[in-house]
Design a protein around this nucleic acid. Structure first.
Lengths: 206, 206, 206, 206
DNA sequence: TATGAATGAGCGTTCATTCAT
DNA sequence: TATGAATGAACGCTCATTCAT
């Protein structure tokens, strides 16, 4: 009984977050109102407020979700520290189509904007981004030691460039349709090699 | 007398836009209210509305300002079509410090978010971005013909990558301080060369 | 339960319309503000707006009510087309006391004024008036054929005169108390007979 | 000098009233704003307020103007007290086209509405209407003694009917174009005869 | 536990009126 | 005397949140 209730509770929370996400993507965080989220989630306001104590709590929970997604990537890079270039190459194939999806892009923009005015969201973001940066920077350093990345690469700058590239790709997707995602992915994969590897034009990092 | 009035008028508009910009950066477009903008600009609501007919009009005017800035860059690239790589290299030195400024970055985020819900802002943005993309794509093609850019480069993808990189840099700056802008600029300049030029490691595009 | 809610809803709408009507009569449509209507209807603004989406919607609903009233008269005249004079005679007894009621009169004035600046109200009014005019004109023509109305009567002019008389009676009542409604009714009834019937002084139309 | 100033002053007042009248007709008293009236009158707000101490003062002055117009008619009827029917017949020819003019009609509506919420305007109206009523009632009585009006006529009711007819004609004209003013005038003239005179169908009152 | 009616502060905006120049 | 920039209270309306049922 206990367990069932907990599961139901978690399930409801998920449904609410999905409904909220949908509304936020469609109208933006500020223009989407609670009434609408309730309707989309098939819930009364009173019920919804039993699961989330405020609109801000929903936004935060949604941001938290994104954090979980990022955690997977961090894990993958950490497990392939000796060859970041290859890890990024592999990740890109899945990541680029995902982050250039308009819904994902719109949601990201909303979060970044929200981070600018909501301290809690900002803190969460900062944490995710710091984790990501540290993981990637570390991986570049390790890869340099392992010889798979050029010594001339400045790890912090390279990290900033790589993260920016993905962030930018997502932002652009919110207002511009990416024509050819396959070619774009290939271009980015080559670029990352060019940035990190010695004989980039050889097609693969040693 | 006439002239003075016109100057005063223009001066006031500028002051209002500055005040609004400041408020938008601090609180976000939606949370910043007109009362606050008025207070910041040392103006009564009635007075402010003599200069801008609505909050949206202020947002649009601010977006228009950004457009003017972009126009300068477009012009520069167009005048150096035969060697985009070099043009981008030159531009980067000024552009990167500017777009990584936290105020600029925060404002950009707000605009992108606003574009998702305000048709007029969206149209303006679309136009800027289309101009930019077309200009850069054309320059890459011309540079390819001139031999300064590799034939293997896919102009649309390269354009997307370059624009994304700058967009991303700006977005990141809104939540993360860029430690070493000099080094970052250098890394990006090299990256763009690597992306576009044959003998990128030689330090310069032929 | 469902039904009760619906009934409650309808009841509330009615209450709001009554409150609004009262405020409009007392202060005029423009000077009466929503806060006041809310107070009169014992409702918060948020609540009121669940029933009517705008002040204009309230005005329109009130105008619609009047339209319903008019529809009854149109129906009656239509059912007695062969003898309009008699129909008007009958109607007058009820109609005159009603339209000379100060509240009714004040509300009418407000509507006419509103029609001059609110397109939707104007359209509604135009429709009512056109229906009324057409119905009356037709009835006069039919009565002429049936012999109960003089051939010399010009249907459009007679219609205008009759409608104007009632409109005018109402307007006057908004700023002047009608001393003797009985006598006035009799005078008007005789006048309408004089206007339409052959042997008007005989006291009845053949 | 003194005189010239006074004349100029009066002239300006007239111009302002004309401008205001125009604005009120176009937009209604409440939607017409002072800025607009100033612009129409080619005057700065500061100047305008030297001539009229408030918007209400303008409305009142405009109402006063109408009063002057009414005074002319009162005078005419008073001078023909022994034969009101004839006097009304004569007056109608000029009066009906005038009061069915849309501008006049719209202005009248605005005034009546205003009277409902502005005590001073209400007082003025009451006075005009009382004068008019007394004059007409008196004329009917005098005409009855003189034999030109039927004894059976109830002076107060007949007065109300006649005044209502003219008021109603004006009101209707604000939302319905009068198709044939000539025929309408004739119909009304005959109606007034029928109301007041013994052998109305003879075409003239003895 | 569940509902959705109810709240009310706060939003963007307008405009009659004033007053420094 | 003449200007028009400036004021600020008040408007219609929204919506995150609460609470009686």
């Amino acid at each position: 009984m206990r367990k069932k209730n907990k599961e139901l509770h978690a399930q409801r929370r998920k449904e609410i977050l999905e409904a909220a996400s949908q509304c936020f993507i469609e109208k933006g965080i500020h223009k989407a109102n609670m009434q609408e989220i309730c309707r989309t989630a098939n819930l009364s306001p009173g019920q919804l407020y039993r699961f989330f104590k405020s609109k801000d709590a929903i936004i935060l929970a949604l941001a938290e979700q994104e954090r979980q997604a990022a955690a997977g990537m961090i894990e993958y890079i950490r497990n392939n520290e000796a060859n970041v270039a290859e890890a990024l190459h592999t990740i890109s194939s899945d990541l680029i189509p995902e982050i250039t999806d308009i819904s994902y892009a719109r949601m990201s923009i909303e979060f970044v904007g929200e981070a600018g005015r909501n301290k809690e969201v900002a803190n969460l973001f900062e944490k995710i981004e710091k984790d990501f940066r540290m993981c990637l920077e570390q991986a570049i350093k390790t890869s340099q030691k392992a010889g798979s990345v050029k010594k001339s690469v400045d790890p912090p700058s390279a990290t900033t460039v790589i993260l920016s590239l993905f962030d930018g790709l997502s932002v652009r997707s919110s207002f511009e349709t990416i024509a050819n995602k396959k070619k774009l992915t290939k271009t980015i994969q080559e670029l990352i090699r060019a940035l990190l590897c010695k004989n980039a034009n050889k097609g693969e990092c040693s």
